[in-house]
Amino acid sequence: MSTTITLYPLSNYPFASKDQQLEEDPSVVARLQRLEHDYEQYGMRRTVEGIMLVHEHGHPHVLLTQVGSAFFKLPGDYLKPHESDEQGLKARMHLRLGPDPPGDAADGEMKVEEDGAGADEWEVSDVIGQFWRPNFESFMYPYKPAHITKPKEVKTWHLIQLPETRILTVPKNQKIVALPLFELYDNAIRYGPQLSSLPALLSRVNFVYAS
């Protein structure tokens, strides 16, 4: 059974700016080291990311966060042990692209609001894909390898149904780019194996183009 999602024009989503958000880890090596440390305490890490789609020139575009000149990713992050996928993703979408809380310190530190204020404005839809990290290494698979009994991380992609219009508030050290699906398709050299697989995963989705 296919999923139906409504796409609105890119022009319906103006961007605003907010305080920068620094990455917790300065490098891939540091991130994997922290993953290993957290795994010893909490077990397998669960990561959630949101897929926001718009249309431009009659074609679906996915909204990606760009960090630096060549690093693109979907908005999201890892969950706390007690969080559900849906509520955790809502909180992280609000953290990444919602306005700064009033009186928030401009120290660049990312903090997920415990009360979830503003998070419920995000509409989380179907799961589109999952990727598994079998070891403390950078590569992830779109399936759980049969010989791996204790994967170290699972990343889940959810569709986000955007409202008809919304202001997306972007950290000063990042920007949002809208990439057409044909740019991502079969382009692992530039965008990596996960993002380049997104057009194929979205092939089961029925897009409704709203004006």
Rank of each mutant, 00 (worst) to 15 (best):
F139W: 14
F131W: 15
E109T: 12
A119V: 07
F131L: 14
K152T: 15
A210S: 13
M140R: 08
M110Y: 02
D186N: 08
A188H: 03
D126W: 12
L159Y: 04
L159N: 05
Q130R: 14
T169D: 06
G129W: 09
R204Q: 12
D104M: 14
L181P: 07
E183F: 00
P134N: 07
P142Y: 06
I160M: 01
W157C: 08
H147C: 13
V177C: 02
M140E: 11
L201K: 09
L201C: 01
S197L: 03
G129E: 01
L202C: 02
N135M: 15
E153T: 14
L184T: 05
A210N: 08
L201N: 01
Q161C: 03
I148Q: 10
K111Q: 11
N173F: 07
N173Y: 06
T169P: 01
L168A: 13
G129N: 08
D104L: 13
P193K: 01
K150N: 11
P142R: 07
P199Q: 08
S196G: 05
G118M: 00
R133P: 11
A188S: 06
V208Y: 05
L201I: 06
L159A: 09
D104T: 12
A119C: 09
T165M: 09
R133E: 04
A146N: 06
V124C: 07
N135F: 15
K172Q: 15
N206D: 01
N187H: 12
E164G: 12
L202R: 07
P151Y: 12
V154P: 15
A178T: 05
P171K: 12
E183A: 02
R190V: 14
R204L: 13
Q161S: 01
F136V: 15
P151M: 11
Y209N: 05
L202H: 07
P171E: 13
V208N: 06
R133Q: 05
S196I: 02
Y141W: 09
D120P: 12
H158E: 03
W157F: 11
E121P: 08
S203Y: 02
F136G: 15
I148C: 12
D126A: 15
L198Y: 05
P171S: 14
F131A: 14
L181Q: 02
L198Q: 08
D115G: 00
V127K: 08
E121F: 09
E113C: 01
L195E: 06
G118H: 11
T165R: 05
W132F: 14
V127R: 04
I160R: 02
V127Y: 07
P145A: 04
E113F: 03
P193Q: 03
S196P: 03
